[in-house]
Write a protein that binds this DNA or RNA. Structure first.
Ligand SMILES: [Mn+2]
Ligand SMILES: [Mn+2]
Ligand SMILES: [Zn+2]
Ligand SMILES: [Zn+2]
Lengths: 137, 137
DNA sequence: TAATAAGTGCAATGGAAGTGCATTTGTTAT
DNA sequence: ATAACAAATGCACTTCCATTGCACTTATTA
């Protein structure tokens, strides 16, 4: 779509074939993906390119990184106007113990967390683990 | 102390010199430790032994694992009667972006998190990042 | 004391993240 | 249009941490 190119340009990211493909791949995935997932989807491309593309997207706040506790970093597109710069993604993430998929619950914002005196909270990572909607029914 | 031996026995863990030492090491640390931390504290012992000791402790719910987002697994003693079996540690963890230390905030329980219909929450991992009390003053 | 099981040490493996450098592709200035 | 330059890509390699196989030692128990 035309809009993806506009989006990339608006974030000072040069439009390349690879970047468009990776963006589309992320956009049509409803779940967070690992680098290996991307690798498998683009077997012709080099791992490094995919890695650096994701890192570029991350720096420019197009994707955010998710640490769901599996030890493998996952990535997902940011919401429109998510402003990761200011506060890292404020929504919570759900990791399914059954299918091992991780999903952004973008409507579910992270509640205010109180910390003891002397501690300063800058951001919060909240991962709920359990059974996802696909696996529970 | 006598009590450590009793504790280990009550959890069906054989008492060995190494295990007592590692337990004591964890007990006197107020922060969560990495395997490397333990390794540095016991240079004479083999990495594998330390690793397996920690894993044994983990299985028997004497320590719990903490994923603070640094990519390196950390460990800390469970609270008395923490019952990790039922619900993984319910308290929140604080990671200091300055000194890189991670601490259990055992008094600060994780609030109830609502998830969408169809999702079943089994447990929650909550890591707050910011500046710790030692670094903020 | 012999048989057995558990604990420990050494070596090696595997997976994922990250980096250096050469090559290719795209942009900009002449 | 061409040359000069900068960014993107591909390949090889490295590092770091987690994990395992197997031999050896130490502790239990028969
Ligand atoms: Mn997300
Ligand atoms: Mn803890
Ligand atoms: Zn699922
Ligand atoms: Zn600190």
């Amino acid at each position: 779509m035309q809009t993806i190119e506009k989006l990339l340009e608006s974030k000072d990211i040069r439009v390349t074939a690879m970047r468009l493909l990776i963006y589309k791949f992320l956009a049509e995935k409803e779940i967070a993906v690992t680098l290996s997932d991307i690798e498998n989807a683009f077997e012709k491309a080099d791992r490094t390119t995919l890695y650096r593309t994701i890192k570029t997207f991350e720096e420019k706040d197009i994707v955010h990184q998710i640490d769901d506790g599996t030890g493998i970093t996952k990535y997902a597109l940011c919401e429109n106007g998510c402003n990761c710069e200011i506060e890292t993604d404020l929504h919570l993430h759900f990791h399914c113990n059954n299918c091992n998929e991780t999903i952004c619950l973008t409507d579910h914002k992270i509640p205010q967390i109180k910390v003891p005196d002397g501690f300063v909270s800058e951001n919060v990572n909240l991962v709920v683990k359990g059974i996802c909607d696909k696996c529970s029914r």
